[in-house]
Design a protein around this nucleic acid. Structure first.
Lengths: 129, 129
DNA sequence: CTTGACCTTCCCCTGTACTGGAAGGTCCAG
DNA sequence: CTGGACCTTCCAGTACAGGGGAAGGTCAAG
């Protein structure tokens, strides 16, 4: 399969696959005599894995680490668990921050609900912020 | 006041203030004969406003829009309200996505809690992801 | 033989909010 | 008059995950 075909099958673009190869997420592809990249369906599974990793909020570099462990013949389960743990902690923090931000903005917005521009103080930019 | 002094007063850096000027958030500063930027305390208030905008999750470009409206002599209240509304909607969406992601990852993590590497399938990267 | 679809490498661009550093000018104390 | 602290401009880079487009090679159909 050529790069455009496998890209479509895996739901991505040729450009992205070259980028993944460049970043070490995909091994250097086999080449036809003309220099075209040639893939097997195994690669589709690898791209799917990358997509699942992204869906779990992992960065490409973290996914690459998992794949590297796997490619060395080891079981990445422990590393995956650690990454998921770390991700979970990060997300909890983000949720807390975002919730606090939402409350702050909701308050500000309520104050700005009925604007009275005539009472604007020329010395400040906006009394609502 | 020179740039380093006002930066410290406002809790930022000289570098950042030059950046803000470049981005149009601060008007071009007056200059001493030697070419040094010279500020008044009004600028501190403007920088504080920028910081409040950032604390509300607005981007510098959005804050710049508010300041532009204000600098044209108009009351930015309506625009501020719209921005806060939009921000609120965005945050609600982010919260929903993040909550869903947290649940997904929590499930994955639980499955990976007690790894059994010996049952790893060589055909897949990691059965936990 | 040519057209069009596909492929190759290459480099730059996107958005966000800065930060680092080089090369040089200015100001004040000692 | 020299040292150090400050200032100036400009260029480049950070993290993230690609996207845009140029210049050129390849392949199958008509």
């Amino acid at each position: 399969m050529r790069i455009g075909e496998i890209a479509e099958t895996a739901g991505t673009t040729a450009k992205t696959l070259r980028f993944y190869e460049d970043q070490g997420l995909l091994p250097p592809a086999e080449r036809t005599p003309a220099g075209y990249r040639e893939y097997t369906s195994e690669t589709v599974a690898r791209i799917d894995f990358i997509h699942r990793g992204q869906a779990a909020g992992l960065t490409l570099m973290q996914i690459r680490q998992i794949l590297d462990i796997r490619d060395r013949g080891q079981a990445p389960c422990g590393h995956v668990r650690d990454l998921l743990d770390a991700r979970l902690t990060e997300i909890e923090q983000q949720l807390a921050q975002l919730t606090a931000l939402r409350d702050t903005i909701a308050d500000l917005r309520d104050q700005a609900a009925e604007p009275e521009p005539e009472s604007c103080n020329p010395d400040q930019v906006c009394r609502y912020l």
